[in-house]
């Protein structure tokens, strides 16, 4: 049987200010699992996510989602941004932010209706933020802020979730909450793609791994590709990280 890829990337090249960030990447994501993207700084991890979302101009190649160009399937993809790019003083509450997830489904001048409000309430409840739903987002802790954006992605009811560094600056409880949520979404048949730079928990968290350093180094089930030779190819020459991963293997084996 021929399984249709959820995300199909062919010969993708993207550059910023004439410096290539991703070169000739070919990648077919078929599995609806939890997929990690790892690679050193400047390897193009976030760029890959943005290319899937259609947010960056593409030099060459194609990106298709469910066999269609991204702009046709926008409301099937949701995105959780890195925390640093958000203006936390912005006058919006938890509820307001989660409601933004519904905008993808509303017409140009359509206003959110009762069913949207129900979905938003349910999403807030699912990440355990009910108590804080009328708080301005700047009054929350780092972990709570991350949950708000997760709830927004949930409210979007998308098939694919893309998360950019969701574990940075969150407490252990939130990290667990995020992982639990990823698993429950995965159980519902959704694809979850996560950019991550901490190698420590890769084996625990991700069923599949994309290893990238501008070029695609490897993609496959974590236990098959999370190997010293591929890691050294990915992190080429960065000794400190390499040693760290070797130590990791020492512990893991």
């Amino acid at each position: 049987m021929n399984i249709k890829p959820v995300i199909d990337i062919q010969n993708l090249t993207v550059s910023y200010h004439r410096k290539p960030a991703i070169r000739s990447v070919n990648l077919k994501l078929t599995e609806r699992g939890i997929i990690g993207i790892i690679g050193p700084n400047g390897a193009g991890k976030s760029t890959l996510l943005k290319a899937i979302l259609g947010l960056v101009p593409i030099d060459n190649g194609t990106v298709k989602v469910f066999g269609e160009p991204v702009f046709k399937v926008r409301n099937k993809i949701s995105y959780v941004p890195q925390k640093e790019i958000i203006d936390w003083d912005f006058p919006v509450t938890v509820y307001d932010v989660v409601m933004m997830g519904r905008y993808a489904h509303l017409g140009v001048i359509e206003r959110p209706g009762p069913s949207d409000r129900d979905i938003v309430e349910a999403a807030i409840d699912k990440v355990g933020m009910n108590e804080y739903k009328n708080q301005q987002i700047g009054n929350l802790s780092g972990g709570q802020q991350q949950r708000v954006f997760l709830a927004r992605a949930l409210a979007q009811e998308s098939e694919i979730l893309l998360l950019d560094e969701p574990f940075v600056g969150v407490d252990a409880a939130t990290e667990h909450a995020i992982i639990d949520l990823m698993h429950s979404l995965n159980d519902e048949g959704k694809m979850v793609v996560v950019v991550n730079h901490d190698l420590g928990k890769v084996q625990e968290y991700f069923q599949y791994l994309i290893m990238i350093n501008q070029r695609l180094i490897a993609y496959g089930p974590t236990r098959e590709v999370f190997k010293p030779d591929l890691l050294s190819k990915t992190y080429g020459g960065r000794l400190t990280i390499l040693q760290k991963t070797e130590q990791l293997f020492g512990v893991a084996q």
Binding site: L53, L55, R74, P81, D96, A104
Partner: peptide
């Protein structure tokens, strides 16, 4: 009033706004 959604989201999170097609 009519384009409150667009004004709010593009001001707050332009990346998501673009991603959902605004």
């Amino acid at each position: 009033t009519l384009f409150y959604k667009q004004l709010q989201l593009t001001s707050f999170d332009p990346i998501m706004a673009t991603a959902i097609g605004m």
